[in-house]
């Protein structure tokens, strides 16, 4: 017997909240995969810590999504009983960890965005989202600092680390554009002052990332073709494997309490 997927009524606010929750959970999951396997013990600690921050953000957001939806879903049902096509996270955060450079560059791209994004969201007219934003912004500011320092070390370290860091930038660049996309559903929340417009953040994000890249002696790609689809449930092949691991227990033991 396996537990079937739930259905979710994705009103604009539910969908919006799930998108942010899924970003945090999937990236937190990826970072937690490092635990016990990092290049130095201090990074085992740091990566676990950031994973914990992100899983904490996800829990608050799932809880809120469930409350707004007002049916009998909860944080665990939303996390464990939706399939790939129902997940709403950015393609960037589901990218596999790869080597440490891939993980750090992914972290830099996301944290530079999330820090700006949550800072803006602190002014949301939705009190719950504003409170989540205030906490998340502090955490993401640290994640950004940590990732920036590592990308600089790797880019300006040895020939090998430079090569790996540049390869990571080249591989992940096409997944950054999706962070700044909006659709009609999100537009209605922006108009109501509940959400902020992420397109406004692009210049500052570019300036932060370019500054780090320059310090790191890395080159940002000129290719401006951007992948998209995660926000609508069109994911890479990687997400299904991640979910099959993440959801194994809840799917295998329907209705059990843990």
């Amino acid at each position: 017997m396996t537990a079937p997927s739930i259905t979710v009524s994705e009103t604009p606010l539910v969908l919006y909240t799930l998108r942010r929750a899924d970003d945090a959970l999937i990236l937190g999951h990826r970072l937690s995969e490092w635990c016990g396997h990092a290049p130095v013990l201090e990074e085992d600690m740091a990566l676990s810590n950031m994973a914990l921050d992100l899983i904490g953000q996800a829990r608050e957001l799932y809880g809120y999504a469930a409350k707004v939806e007002g049916r009998d879903n909860d944080e665990d049902k939303l996390a464990y009983l939706r399939d790939v096509r129902q997940y709403r996270n950015l393609l960037l955060v589901e990218r596999p960890n790869g080597d440490f450079a891939q993980t750090m560059v992914r972290q830099l791209f996301y944290a530079a965005f999330a820090d700006l994004y949550w800072r803006g969201m602190m002014g949301s007219t939705d009190a719950t989202l504003a409170a989540v934003a205030a906490k998340s912004e502090k955490e993401c500011a640290y994640h950004l600092r940590h990732a920036s320092e590592w990308v600089i070390r790797l880019g300006d370290g040895t020939d090998e680390s430079h090569r790996r860091a540049q390869a990571a930038v080249d591989d992940l660049w096409a997944y950054t554009g999706e962070m700044f996309n909006i659709d009609d559903s999100e537009r209605s929340l922006i108009d109501a002052g509940i959400a902020i417009d992420p397109t406004m953040l692009l210049p500052e994000w570019l300036s932060i990332v370019s500054h780090v890249a320059r310090e790191a002696t890395l080159t940002l790609p000129e290719n401006d073709w951007m992948q998209r689809g995660g926000r609508d449930g069109r994911h890479s092949e990687h997400l299904g494997h991640l979910l099959s691991e993440l959801q194994y227990m809840q799917r295998s033991f329907p209705g059990a309490t843990w």
Partner: peptide, 30 residues
């Protein structure tokens, strides 16, 4: 000792358990 428990971080059965287990394994590293 981080390894046998770390084996279940990505499969923990609820978000609360996942966070607690991750924090525990992190404590052990500390």
């Amino acid at each position: 000792g981080m390894l046998p428990e770390g084996n279940w971080i990505t499969r923990a059965p609820s978000l609360r358990r996942k966070a607690a287990l991750l924090a525990k394994v992190q404590d052990e590293c500390g």
